[in-house]
Design a protein around this nucleic acid. Sequence first.
DNA 1: AAAAGATTGTACCGATAGGTACATGCGGTA
DNA 2: TACCGCATGTACCTATCGGTACAATCTTTT
Lengths: 193, 193
Amino acid sequence: MSSKRVLTDRASALPALAEAFREHGFEGATLATLSKATGLGKGSLYNFFPGGKEEMMDAVLENIDGWFANAIFSPLEQALDPAAAITGMFDDVTAYFRSGQRVCVVGCLGLNSAGEAFAAKVKGYFARWISALAHCLEAGKVPPALAANLAEEAVSGIQGAIVLARALGEEASFLRIVQRLQSSLLDAIVRYG
Amino acid sequence: MSSKRVLTDRASALPALAEAFREHGFEGATLATLSKATGLGKGSLYNFFPGGKEEMMDAVLENIDGWFANAIFSPLEQALDPAAAITGMFDDVTAYFRSGQRVCVVGCLGLNSAGEAFAAKVKGYFARWISALAHCLEAGKVPPALAANLAEEAVSGIQGAIVLARALGEEASFLRIVQRLQSSLLDAIVRYG
DNA sequence: AAAAGATTGTACCGATAGGTACATGCGGTA
DNA sequence: TACCGCATGTACCTATCGGTACAATCTTTT
């Protein structure tokens, strides 16, 4: 159990790192910020992440991807009960993004040149989300072409809702938009299911 | 005509500044970047924008807001021909955001703490866009409550389409999403008009 | 053409960026 | 208890950050 200890402490720093990156962005998050956020000194930070900020962000992305895979993608891909899986997805997403007050690190990375180093992971995250959701809709008897469109629209719509809710500074718009997206997916399942 | 000259040159630097901020974000855009982007030395930059980066971004926002007010908000607010105004909006937006490859500076500013200084302008931009669009739909006989929902959905949807298109690195998804948004607005006008 | 003012490049400033080096400390093992 | 190796705080490094100062140059006006 010697090497596990390291991984454990490294992993336990990830939520704080993620939160710091969310709040300040990749460029805006300084080592001082990250140190304060995690409670770890520079020495520890570089001990766990020899690659510096970039490795920290990489680990954060891996961590986020793992969470989504487990909590959201998997249920959609299994899709035992499509309607329930979709309802669950929206519940989880709303909680995760704190009704739009909390930013999507992955989406933000795609927006400026600082995130180019992570382009592959960013693309993978969204591609898998859309395809998982489309698969779930198909399991609910929605025709493939429509399922793909609806899935793309929903994932994109969630990102837009975050941008808008942050800009307006109100959670209500996020909740309204996401509610409509959910309805449109469930309606499709009801119609064809 | 002495003070006019100053304003003219200051204004002519704004597109390049905007592009630099778009590409690197507010924090990521250094004075060196901005200098290279505009072709102006540090001396000139601080001559035109004594307040530094913050004043530059402020001027850029003002400029963008002016462009949108003129090209997009006004036509929607007049709404002589609602359907045509909406079609025109989507055409202009698609061209402006280069089918989603070009980021929305205003939306991005809302996403991290560096943009807090501009919160009021960010909020005003989105609030006016939504209300102009809603007004246009109402002019097309769409009931107020539905018009408000559709307008919110469309503006939010455009932002989401940018995020997704950038993340996936493909313009096609932007075009598909925006096309569907446009159809849903026009359909509402047709239904009630 | 000369004076006045606007415009610009360059040198410079302190602060802080990300990152490295390393001496110290602490926990487990023998 | 003596040892060993990971973990950590601190001091330090260079590059660059945003910003200032100012002398040199251009424009404009007269």
